[in-house]
């Protein structure tokens, strides 16, 4: 074999390797994010994640997501299912604490509102939503609890935000149990773990221009 094919081969291999390294860097945000959840949080932190407006069915009837709106309200949004006995109950507990703080500071006119989206449409009936709200002392003025009004609405919202619920084989789901900070335009401004709710609240208040 002459040197010419080897030189051309090495050139082609180098070009292919460089292209694949560039692609990998693009897909992993510069070799720093290796999981979908990490990429999703990066997208949220840089304002590249948007929550579409979808109709929600609540215990009191059908309404819409509170975004987009002309107000400067900011929303702390979590995803739950009412049959959940683990993380959703913990989220509910933290939301109860958040609600207490908001009510103490702003009364019924809080610039930060809570939204819980229940994704198990089969079981998250208005009755179950009401029971969940009662269990966590939810105040309608501060905390909206609803399930997407149609399967299409659920797919639209969950896919846009990258929220994935995986059946756990025991009749429940494993899902991203995080708090999403969403502004009045529907743009996600941050994603916080359950135990980071004070930081989520602080950031929400900053976005509304309220001193923390």
């Amino acid at each position: 074999m002459s040197q010419r094919p080897l030189a051309l081969t090495l050139f082609a291999v180098t070009a292919l390797s460089l292209a694949l390294v560039a692609l990998s860097a693009q897909l992993t945000n510069g070799f720093t994010r290796w999981t979908f959840e990490a990429l999703r949080r990066d997208a949220a932190a840089t304002g590249r994640l948007s929550a579409p407006a979808v109709p929600l069915r609540t215990a009191n009837g059908v309404t819409g997501t509170p975004w987009p709106s002309d107000t400067h309200t900011v929303y702390l949004v979590d995803f739950i299912y009412t049959q959940c006995l683990t993380i959703c109950q913990a989220l509910g507990g933290e939301y109860t604490r958040l609600q207490r703080q908001l009510r103490a500071r702003f009364g019924a006119h809080s610039p930060v509102r809570l939204v819980s989206v229940a994704f198990d449409r089969k079981h998250d009936t208005p009755t179950e939503l009401q029971a969940y709200a009662r269990r966590h002392h939810a105040d309608d003025a501060l905390w909206l609890i609803g399930t997407p009004a149609s399967a299409q609405a659920a797919d639209t919202l969950l896919q846009a935000l990258g929220v994935v619920a995986v059946p756990d084989g025991l009749g429940g789901f494993v899902h991203n149990g995080a708090i999403h900070l969403i502004d009045s335009h529907g743009t996600v401004r941050g994603i916080y773990d359950l135990d980071q709710w004070p930081q989520a609240l602080e950031r929400a208040l900053q976005l509304t221009g309220t001193p923390t």
Partner: peptide, 15 residues
């Protein structure tokens, strides 16, 4: 001419 010793094809497989 661009795959001497199978280098290009095997690079693709590895990648």
């Amino acid at each position: 001419v661009i795959d001497a010793h199978g280098l290009l094809g095997l690079t693709w497989v590895s990648a």
